[in-house]
């Protein structure tokens, strides 16, 4: 489902003397249907950079990232948008939403964008919010005022609203209590069971051991590069 070949990346800082910083070279990776692959490596080794390239958020320098038949490295912006809408989900560490929009709408939005009828989309959103223990009285409020843990759970609910064939998870269990951590791990297991290919970063070792089928050390992709 996700196949990365010979991927490289460097940043050029034009406003700091045009210095070029290579951050990745020769990255290879493959995630099959129903598989969860965890990225490991010390902080700053390039786990997040790799994830962002897969999502099309960072521009790759070379190589290919094939997701469901589309090469993200060479794809047109609108192809990436279509990919993100229907195929590739992303749970980032930070919730970024239009202020004032109610939580329920925030979670339902990925489904609404796919053309799911509003009542159905909202019902699915309500299910997920309930499972993640967001009290119903908060659903009508904007999540921008919520605590860090609550925002993280809203973000997860949003990421799981649509059954994406491929998912990127960036520390999904960070800052969650034991009970909610368990809910999130169950959601990941369910996604795997329906055949989703998952690429994730998990600092939580217990979580990593439970859901990841394989681990890939990204340090191998940055060897020999100036960090």
């Amino acid at each position: 489902m996700i196949e990365i070949r010979n991927l490289s990346k460097s940043f050029t800082l034009h406003n700091q003397g045009g210095v070029a910083i290579p951050v990745m070279a020769g990255a290879h990776l493959r995630v099959d249907h129903g598989e969860c692959v965890g990225l490991v490596g010390r902080s700053g080794a390039g786990k997040s950079t790799l994830m962002r390239m897969v999502y099309g958020n960072y521009l790759a320098g070379g190589g290919s990232i094939r997701i469901g038949g589309l090469d993200v490295v060479t794809a047109e912006p609108r192809e990436i948008l279509a990919l993100r809408r229907a195929v590739l989900g992303h749970v980032s560490q930070f919730l970024r939403v239009v202020p004032r929009v109610p939580t329920l709408e925030v979670v339902a939005e990925p489904l609404l964008r796919l053309g799911t009828p509003a009542p159905q989309a909202r019902a699915r959103a309500a299910d997920l919010l309930a499972r993640l223990n967001i009290p119903e009285r908060l659903w009508a409020l904007s999540p921008t005022t919520f605590s860090g843990g609550e925002q993280q759970r809203v973000n997860i609910a949003r990421g799981f609203a649509h059954d994406y064939p491929a998912l990127l998870l960036d520390e999904p269990t960070a800052s969650l209590d034991a009970q909610n951590r368990e809910v999130v791990l169950c959601l990941i297991e369910e996604a795997k069971a329906r055949g989703a290919a998952i690429l994730g970063i998990f600092h939580d070792e217990g979580a990593r051991e439970r859901v990841c089928d394989r681990l890939v050390d990204v340090t191998g992709f940055t060897r020999g590069l100036a960090a």
Binding site: N15, R52, G56, P77, I80, L81
Partner: peptide
């Protein structure tokens, strides 16, 4: 390019300046 890509990984000197 994609909005988030241009804002998060700007390639041109001017965009980098604008974003920063």
């Amino acid at each position: 390019g994609l909005t988030d890509q241009v804002l998060d990984d700007p390639q041109h000197a001017y965009t980098q300046l604008l974003v920063s």
